[in-house]
Design a protein around this nucleic acid. Structure first.
Lengths: 389, 389
DNA sequence: CTCGCGATAGAAAGCGCTTACTGAATCTGC
DNA sequence: GCAGATTCAGTAAGCGCTTTCTATCGCGAG
């Protein structure tokens, strides 16, 4: 039915081996022969059988990317950057990105990881926040370890917990992430010296196959809240992200750290959790305002939620930023176009995605210790101002 | 190194065939045996080797989705819906979505298609507008034909040209798309009767493997412009999408059809082309206003561009909608939150994506003639109103 | 001249899994 | 109880490609 290597070989009057060599190009083939083969390939419109070559060569050109929500620009930007990097490199050959939508579900995350392992993916990139549930963290670590063991490169993009758990599993102790673009050594990896006798040793997580690119969520949130406090705000509401997720925890911690630094009391009633969408932002802000009408500022879980917050504030007849300042997070493309333009914290999404892509292709060296924390930058725009009492 | 079927078989004290049968579950295996096998699989943490099984079974569980820009919610929504559908079905097994970012480049489109063919993808879904370039259309048709011939299901989602070209290639003549949710028979497919002698016949495009889900861009645009005209607007600017793309052409045609229906003269200077992003919208609107300060309304290529249009209008000191009405297209999630909320045309993105997913899995019957045009719905919000002279 | 070496091309052994075929029990109905 | 239907498990032949290991051909060195 389909054209195979053998067909090409027959047509070019060479052996299958030669055709294979011409196509993979890692073996000397005389120019004339190569030409004949290439012509035959052309004439027969031959396309390599991926599964077959993956089986024979024990390697594949698939790279998996796990995202929480593919319709969310946050992930779209990262995924886009990754893919550009994957296909940009002539060297190493075109890789195919497999984007998997977990919807934030730990189970689906595991399912996809297994599916990717089944495909013998060359690399796997996990993006976005992770569940803080211990049981899931353990299961995830185990799966990641199996993947790494099978030679799949693993890159965690914006999720520190993973590496912490994995490192913990191997006894290494990563320092507390905090600085920006700092990289630290979580204790030298134990020498992987060949121990012929220890053939039955428990499979240790090859930490060297795991790289983490973390966002400085905590620092960014701290800066943002500090900015608000600097403007004179004292009653600041917080629309936090989904409960039980690493990113939510980090941003909340930064927010509270700023509050604490300025000696401002923080009460639970000024925090409401919600998803990263407009409706959640709207509901959360409405709830916040109901609880305490005197709030002068609200920080949202991200820019999308901030849009909902703005709508809720306005529906209450309040002006932004005169009555209530509103701030987002992530600096998604549309936030500059919101009215008023959103003050937010910019995360280097594009850059991080590209870096993750390079790491996945093995085209970039992993940072020392396998961990790099990327700077978050405060972007002040029109949605925040001094409170007008 | 890795655990194989044979290892599991040995551990369960059965043959490899039996393990395979238990795992794929399409052959009777005694309950006891099945239990032993499953236990062994569990104990050894066995994961099927995808490439190997794909090779042996001559089938894969990969489904490719081509999008113009993965960071654009338009595609994100479609892709998300597709993926939900792919993994939602217990029946037929979990499929893996491979999302490919073409960036709107015809070459990359072809490249990805070849890459997917190499992986022997079970199905391929092409979304978004296509290039109107004839040479590319031909190349695309040829590639699609090869894919279809190899048994890959092909679904075109929001791009009518593809099927037209393919149909043309087989001699069928699809009627002019126009109605909403109408489906029509582009001439009965030629009987595919088995002709033993014709074994060397030129490979005909198996049209039955191709399905098109088209958006009624023309109708939507017509409604939108008619709405504007109905409000009293006569000088309407148009920020069209990228030149040379099917979607752009369709929307423009609808716009002009409405204009013509009301006897309003259309001049080229009221149309400017641009990309589907905010910056393009901004620039295009600025240009339009420079050319003709008296415009009372502007329709944008899509919601994202509309955001830019709004910004440009405001920067000129004009109010929306009092001085200039602005309308978008697609009804992306954020458009309801724009200020003022955007009047736009809703496209059933989610629904279409889901349908494409089902079609790709072979879980839904293709519409008669392989073509279904999906209704576009005018959504009137606050950004359009009667012109205030 | 003959030997040996570099440069190429071919032969063949799998890679791990699926799936006809077979084969051996265990059931049916008479 | 026995022929024939059933049910379940094993055998083995590939799927299409990669990759050793060999073989051949020239050609300059000895």
């Amino acid at each position: 039915m389909a054209v195979t290597l053998a067909d090409v070989a027959a047509r070019a009057r060479v052996s299958a081996a030669t055709v294979s060599r011409v196509l993979s190009g890692n073996y000397p083939v005389a120019a004339g022969t190569r030409g004949r083969v290439l012509r035959a390939v052309e004439e027969l419109a031959y396309v390599v059988n991926g599964p077959a070559s993956a089986l024979a060569a024990a390697s594949s050109d698939l790279v998996g990317i796990l995202v929480n929500d593919i319709a969310d620009p946050f992930f779209g930007i990262i995924a886009g950057a990754v893919q550009t990097e994957l296909s940009g490199a002539a060297q190493g050959g075109e890789k195919l990105a497999v984007v998997c939508n977990t919807g934030g579900s730990p189970e689906r995350e595991l399912t996809y990881l297994t599916l990717l392992q089944r495909q013998r993916a060359a690399a796997v990139i996990l993006t976005g926040s992770a569940s803080e549930d211990a049981a899931h963290a353990r299961a995830l670590t185990a799966t990641l370890a199996r993947l790494a063991e099978a030679g799949t490169r693993v890159v965690l993009c914006g999720r520190p917990t993973g590496v912490a758990a994995a490192a913990e599993a191997t006894g290494a102790v990563p320092g507390e992430s905090q600085g920006a673009e700092e990289t630290r050594e979580p204790g030298k990896a134990r020498g992987a010296g060949k121990t012929p006798e220890a053939d039955e040793a428990p499979p240790r997580v090859p930490l060297t196959a795991l790289t983490t690119l973390a966002f400085d969520n905590r620092g960014g949130a701290r800066q943002l809240t500090a900015h608000l406090i600097g403007l004179g705000h004292r009653r600041i509401g917080c629309v936090a992200g989904p409960a039980g997720r690493t990113t939510t925890g980090e941003r909340l911690a930064g927010h509270r750290a700023a509050l604490a630094a300025y000696g401002i009391e923080d009460t639970p009633r000024r925090t409401v959790h919600g998803a990263y969408d407009r409706a959640s932002g709207y509901d959360a802000a409405a709830e916040l305002l109901r609880r305490e009408a005197g709030l002068t500022a609200i920080v949202a879980a991200n820019d999308t939620a901030a849009l909902g917050v703005c709508a809720a504030v306005r529906d209450r007849g309040l002006r932004i930023p005169e009555d209530v300042s509103v701030a987002g997070f992530d600096d998604l493309p549309f936030s500059v176009d919101a009215t008023p333009a959103l003050t937010t914290v910019r995360l280097p999404l594009q850059e991080t995605g590209a870096r993750a892509g390079r790491l996945a292709m093995g085209r970039e060296e992993r940072p020392p210790g396998g961990l790099a924390t990327l700077r978050a930058e405060l972007i002040v725009r029109a949605s925040t101002s001094v409170p007008c009492p």
